[in-house]
Amino acid sequence: MNHRVLLLALLLLALPSWAVIETYQFDTDLQRQRYNAFIEELRCPKCQNQNLSGSDSAISQDLRRQLHAMIMAGKSDIEITQYMVDRYGDFILYRPRFNAATAVLWLLPVGLLLGGLAIWALMASRRTRRVPIQPLDDHDRAALDSLLSDEEKPSERSGGNS
């Protein structure tokens, strides 16, 4: 019985190892870094929100293989990005390039922020306008003086309003 439990526990321990995907050979560290950067930044076209490194779908495997081949063939980052966009559109880039189709995506947050600031400024200016400061007239001033002199000893307010 104990053995079985132990075996089961070992099986569970081995679970993370299932997640290991293909291993590719690189000549230089730079190539490896570029590969790792690309699989983080490129999106799996089949999935809604997974990058190539996180997806085990067939298309992601193909794209990782293609990416590796292109890096080993000495293609530049721009060439690789263009290759992917030519086939899968801007969707494949997690940071899409700025063009007519993606303008809303890039500009909307800034627009919303500016809109919010404008509304906030409008509300703030209204609030200050609603409590206008009016100078006290003589009657008010007399009432204020009598209130103050009731609470405080006259000796302490020697140089006060008279």
Binding site: P45, K46, S57, A58, I59, D62, L63, Q66, R87, Y88, G89
Partner: peptide, 9 residues
Amino acid sequence: LGLDLGVTG
């Protein structure tokens, strides 16, 4: 060809 076509599945 699938890759060139941008086939996802």
